[in-house]
């Protein structure tokens, strides 16, 4: 257990050291989400009615949740590169704790996720987003957000291990996760959707998560959203972490 923790930290450190050396990745973390915020706030925002909230206030929690779920693409692409370059073989031939390669990757994602969430938040504050909550609730929201992002890093870890190229890893992630984020309360009120979609949106983990963020940051009625988001996150982690680790054990060079 101690070895697992130590090895996880070594791998996480490795993934963070390389970050400032890949400017393209940094742009993906910062510029792209800002673009999305501006696009939604100013292009679509005027046409979407969000009773009780300004659209900026409604949007920021939604777009931060969407963005955090995609933070795992670094893990997917990175793992796939490690596989095709034979680095995974090296790790697997070392007397290290085997889950550490994945755990280190996903842990490093927490740092990059925090970074990109802060960039989004600052952008939001500049264009008019305002918290309506105490500091504890704001921090609790941030913690829940990072936990949710961590669970999705494990989903992306699996994508990275099963597909044949780094490009495929990120596009599979996009195809699977992107629609999930849109059929949720992230960008429009669920009530505005047709029945079938609305049913799906109401059980979608993204809806629970976005509603929980609105409850914690804007003082919206929480209902069961915070518990729901927490349970969904634990469930996603409980399924994808062991599946990814077992897949890693069998991973082979392409």
């Amino acid at each position: 257990m101690r070895k697992l923790f130590a090895d996880t930290m070594v791998i996480a450190e490795r993934n963070l050291i390389r970050l400032p050396r890949s400017p393209d990745l940094l742009i993906a973390f910062t510029v792209q989400p800002i673009m999305f915020v501006l696009l939604f706030a100013y292009v679509f925002g005027g046409a979407i009615s969000t009773p009780g909230y300004s659209y900026i206030d409604f949007l920021i929690p939604g777009i931060i949740v969407q963005n955090i779920a995609f933070g795992g693409f670094v893990t997917a692409v990175g793992l796939n590169e490690d596989l095709s370059k034979g680095l995974i073989d090296r790790f697997r031939s070392l007397p290290m704790a085997r889950p550490a390669v994945l755990a280190g990757r996903t842990s490093a994602d927490i740092v990059t996720n925090l970074l990109s969430a802060l960039v989004l938040l600052v952008t939001g504050l500049i264009i008019g987003f305002r918290f309506d909550a105490g500091p504890l609730d704001i921090l609790a929201g941030m913690a829940l957000l990072l936990f949710f992002g961590y669970a999705f890093s494990w989903v992306f870890a699996l994508f990275g291990l099963v597909v044949s190229s780094p490009e495929a890893a990120s596009s599979v992630g996009f195809i699977v996760v992107f629609p999930l984020t849109f059929i949720s309360s992230a960008f429009v009120p669920v009530e505005s959707m047709p029945d079938g979609l609305r049913w799906f949106a109401e059980i979608n983990p993204f809806t629970f998560m976005v509603d929980a963020m609105r409850a914690l940051w804007l003082g919206a009625p929480a209902g069961n959203s915070i518990w729901g988001a927490f349970v969904w996150t634990v469930a996603i982690l409980a399924v994808f972490a062991p599946v990814s680790v077992s897949r890693y054990r069998r991973a082979a060079v392409n």
Binding site: R14, K85, R90
Partner: peptide, 21 residues
């Protein structure tokens, strides 16, 4: 395959492997 992390320096690569041992 020369399985080293291309984004790490030679020193960082070897230090990482040593710590994993």
């Amino acid at each position: 395959y020369a399985a080293v992390d291309e984004n790490l320096t030679g020193l960082e690569n070897l230090t990482m492997v040593g710590r994993l041992y």
